[in-house]
Structures are given as C-alpha cells and as structure tokens.
Simulated assay, not measured.
Amino acid sequence: MVPVRDAGTVTNELTVGQVASLVGISVRTLHHWDEVALVRPSGRTHGDYRVYDAADVARINRVLVYRELGMSLAEIGRVLDDPEVDEREQLLRQRTLLTTRIARLQEMVSAVDQMVEGHDMGQQLSPQEQAEIFGTDWKPEYAEEAEQRWGDTPQWEQSQARAASMTREQWEQVKADTDALEADLAAARCSGVDPASSEAAELVERHRLSIDRFYDCSTSMQVCLTRMYLEDARFTEHYEQLAPGLTAWLADAVAATARAQGIDPETATWQ
C-alpha cells in the first residue's frame, strides 16, 4: 500500500515532483489526476509553476486510500466532492473502509497459515487449489482463533486429521458442494420457504452434513453453530451477501429441525 503522509508536515508550496516523491506516486499519475480534475494544484509560483498546498496533499492521501480499496477515480471524485459529507465524515468513512480491508487481509493471513499447516502435515495444495479453496467467495475459519476456541475438543482433532488426508479432488468437491448448498439456501430464503417446512429441513440436513464431513456434527451442535452465525459479524456478513435475511432464516430452520427431533434450541449444547 502507498504510504499516507501527514499533511500537517507539508509546506504550502510543493512542486509536482516534490509531491510525487513525498507520497510515493509518479509525476505522470499526478498530471493525470490534474487533467481529470480529481486533484488540481491550487497555487502558482511567481514563475507561473503550479504548486500543491497542504490541503491538496491531504486530498491526494484520501485518493490513495480509496484507490487502495478498489474504487475508480470517478467514484472517488464523487465521494470527495459530495457537499453533504464534511472532511471529518470523509476521514471516518475511510477509516471504516480501511478497517474492513485490514480484517480481510488478516483473514488471508489465516488462510496462508492453514496452507502452511497442511504442508507441514504432508498435504500441499496446488496454486489452483489454493485459489479455489481460499478465494473471495469462500470464507476460511480463522485458524488461530479456531484452535484457541476448540483446540482441546475431539471435533478439532477430527477436523485436522480429516483435512490433512483430503486429496485435491476431495477439496474440489467440498468447494462445489458448498457453492451448491449456499445457492439453494439463498434461493429458499428469497422465495419465502417456511423455515419449518420439509424443504427447509432437507437444506438443514445438507448444511449439517457439510460440517459432518470434517467432524461428527450433531443437530445440537448445528444449533450452536447457527447461534454463532448470528453473533459473529463475519459469518453474518457472509450469509447476508448471499441473500438478505439468510442468517436468521438458516438459524430458524435449524431450530425448527431441532424441535422436530425433541431438542430445545434455546438450551442446546455442544454435544
């Protein structure tokens, strides 16, 4: 990421070359931003050279943040020039977006840790497998957090042993099955399927079996997991991206299945 400098240390007259060196981008980029009216130097020297002041550099830093977040120059211009958003609100917006970005990068680090662990256990994935398993459409568990929470359970031991023994074809099947299940869950939610219906119960069983592939998962455990989905923003975000309201719908469907089996979802435990 391009470093963002403190605009408060910038003098009021910096040439394009000085600004390029200060913020770590090219003179050509600054010229382009000037041409498209994204960031224009606001001052001129006695020799009629255009120069940037501290406010101009602060705007450049904001552009760099939004570019790092994947926004187009046109989108950035609209955000920065929005008369309804003051400077402080813009900074808070950038902070929120950066926090989200950092969380995603931390998630990727956890995915790499899992790959290293798999390698150490003799299961090395190819680049294609890595892309399929750890791509943006699939949210891996945070390995360190998972071990801290469940490292002393039989389920953790089972999951580690089963994952380490899986072949490339098996990982591909996991990916395909997960995509199909999530598509069907989203379709059920969007079409208004009753969480207590037999159709929902079939999806609940598929969901349980997707977990059971890695460790023996009972319906009571499934209730605990969906309870965690509602409490953990990372899981909620994943399901809500598939279909609005899907997290609560899945939890309700699992709870209905549990009741049908004589399990009280309000008191279900990890057993």
Rank of each mutant, 00 (worst) to 15 (best):
A164M: 05
A176R: 10
E157L: 05
T178R: 02
D194T: 13
T178N: 10
A188L: 08
Q155Y: 08
A187V: 07
S165G: 14
R168P: 01
E182K: 02
A196T: 10
Q173I: 05
V174N: 12
S191T: 15
V193Y: 00
E169A: 13
D184T: 01
A176N: 06
A183M: 08
S165L: 06
D184I: 00
A188Y: 01
L181M: 07
W156N: 10
A161Y: 08
D184H: 03
Q158T: 04
Q173W: 15
R189A: 12
S159V: 02
C190N: 11
S191Y: 07
Q160N: 09
L185D: 00
A196E: 14
A183N: 11
W156H: 14
V193D: 00
A164S: 12
S165C: 03
L181F: 09
E169N: 08
A176I: 03
Q170A: 10
D184S: 14
E157T: 08
D179T: 14
A176W: 03
Q170S: 02
K175P: 01
T178W: 06
S165F: 03
P154Q: 11
D177V: 02
A180R: 15
A161K: 08
R168Q: 12
C190P: 01
Q173G: 13
L181Q: 04
W171H: 13
A176C: 09
R168K: 13
Q173H: 13
D194M: 03
A164G: 13
Q170T: 08
A188G: 15
R162E: 14
P195D: 00
G192K: 05
D177K: 12
L181N: 05
A176K: 09
D179S: 07
P154M: 02
Q158M: 11
L181V: 08
L181G: 08
A164R: 09
E169Y: 07
D179F: 01
E157N: 03
W156C: 07
R162S: 05
C190K: 12
A187Y: 10
V193W: 00
E157F: 05
C190F: 06
V193S: 01
L185H: 02
A161M: 02
D179H: 11
E182A: 05
Q155K: 11
G192Q: 03
K175F: 04
A186F: 08
R189E: 04
S159C: 03
S165T: 07
K175S: 11
G192P: 03
Q160Y: 07
R168E: 15
S159D: 08
P154V: 09
V174A: 04
A188N: 09
R162M: 06
R168M: 07
L185I: 05
L185C: 11
W171R: 08
V193A: 02
M166I: 04
M166N: 04
S159R: 06
S159L: 08
A176H: 07
A188M: 09
A164P: 05
D179P: 00
A163P: 11
A183R: 13
A180T: 13
A196S: 13
T178E: 14
Q155E: 14
L181R: 01
V174Y: 15
A183F: 02
R189M: 14
S165Y: 04
P154D: 12
A183W: 01
P154R: 11
D179M: 04
A161T: 14
W156K: 10
E169W: 12
D194Y: 13
A196F: 11
R162P: 00
D177F: 02
A188V: 11
A187F: 07
R162Q: 12
G192Y: 06
D184V: 00
A161F: 05
L185W: 00
R162G: 05
Q170N: 03
P154C: 00
